[in-house]
Simulated scan of single mutants.
Amino acid sequence: MSKVFISYARDGSYGENLAVEIQQQLLAAGFAVFRDVIGLKPGDVWYRTLEFELETSDVMVLVVSEKVRTSKWVHNEVSMAEEIGIPVIPVLAEKVRYPLWLRHLQSLDFCGAMDWSLLLGALGHHVGSGAVGVREIPVWANDVGQDEYGRYADLVVKGITQKFRWIEPGTFWMGSPESEPGRYDNEIRHQVTLTKGFWLADTTCTQFLWTAVLDNNPAHFTDDANNPVEGVSWNDTQTFLQKLNTRVAGLNPRLPTEAEWEYACRAGTNTSFSFGDNITSEQINYNGNYPYANGKKGLDRHKTVPVKSLPANAWGLHEMHGNVLEWCRDWYGDYPAEPVTNPEGSQAGVERVVRGGSWHFHGGGVRSAIRRRLDPALRYDFIGFRLALGL
């Protein structure tokens, strides 16, 4: 049973109330929970007990309230958690100015509606779901490990390393709310449950990796072989996948489904972007001359940038927004309005799904929810792809 340490400041208000609700939800979901009022007993040396409880926890949920901003003890608890490698998930209980010592962490906003599936999904990402095989070393992996983003495994092909991130199963809201600026009618918001975890490349396929597999480079922007390979059609990606599969035993590479792609892109968020309600050119490679929702103008680089040039999202995935559009496995089709489980798109069609926007798209064109469709034979200098793997 995974154990969660709830850190909060006693304020008799939003923060403390939310801490109690989180405790109840996590206990009902089968987690072991430590919160000071239920874990400390009369006569305990409280700071030693807190240290012990932290050291034996798998993850910390930090309830962020106004009082937390100035709480020395909460700050100490977070510092210790990070020092010993325990993931920290901040949950906003009220609108506050985010303290400097928390700004490196992606938060969940529970100021209004409390979507427990988001918190449970974030916890599952960090501590696992108990699924068979998740903690085993994949047969194709040259190295495995755990870092601040979660579990990873490295694939090496002819000296070229591609890192994969383990994406836990979970439930999320796919599409966009009607209030989101710049949304399109094909982004009908609906709940999606993914019951199986999967490995997803932390970057799009580079020219290095493509060349290592197929001994050619179709890309237009060849100034750096760490740039994404572009100029590849959906059909071309299938040739690449087949060839890669013959080179690495047990790999079974594929493209992500559209639902897997958006789930990973959002990384537990419900905002327009995984970085929040707006973006900058320092976060995303897009046409900054046309910012999103009255944002500030930024750079227009006119080209791709090397992978990992820009910040990762909360799950360790780079350039999910912008740089290059990414082919998905699905045929394009309309979204349902009702909840679905493990969707794979239309059974047949004439166009394949592409997601994520690219280097020459405007700000609204690189949102988490935006979806496009293209003939699978088309090639452009702003389309690439990202590898996915099953267990």
Rank of each mutant, 00 (worst) to 15 (best):
L251I: 15
P169F: 14
K296D: 15
R165W: 09
S272P: 07
V4C: 08
A122D: 04
E21P: 00
G250D: 11
V33Y: 08
V61Y: 12
A201G: 15
L54N: 00
N186I: 02
A32C: 09
P311I: 13
H321D: 12
G124P: 00
D58I: 07
G333R: 01
L50D: 06
H75P: 00
D185W: 02
G39H: 09
T246M: 02
H104L: 10
F382M: 13
T56R: 15
Q283W: 05
R301H: 05
A93D: 09
E178K: 04
F34I: 06
S117W: 03
T211W: 10
I22Q: 00
P228S: 05
R329T: 12
I6A: 14
L26D: 06
P256C: 12
N142G: 15
E148I: 12
R69P: 04
S2F: 03
G121C: 01
W73Q: 07
R10I: 13
A9H: 13
N278M: 08
K67S: 12
H190R: 04
R151H: 02
R10G: 14
G15N: 07
R372T: 11
T56Y: 12
L391E: 06
E262A: 04
G268M: 07
G130K: 08
E344Q: 10
E16N: 10
G295Q: 10
V63D: 00
M80A: 14
D44I: 05
K243L: 08
A293G: 01
G268T: 05
T280I: 08
L194M: 05
K296R: 15
E282T: 11
P253I: 06
T70Q: 15
L214M: 15
E351M: 11
R103H: 13
E148H: 05
Y184D: 08
S358M: 11
T257Q: 03
K41A: 14
V354P: 07
N245A: 14
M114S: 15
Y380W: 14
L92N: 08
R371Y: 02
S272C: 03
V248Y: 07
P42S: 10
T280D: 11
I284C: 05
T193W: 01
W315M: 07
V229M: 12
D11P: 10
K3L: 10
P376I: 03
N186R: 14
D334G: 00
R10Q: 15
G363T: 06
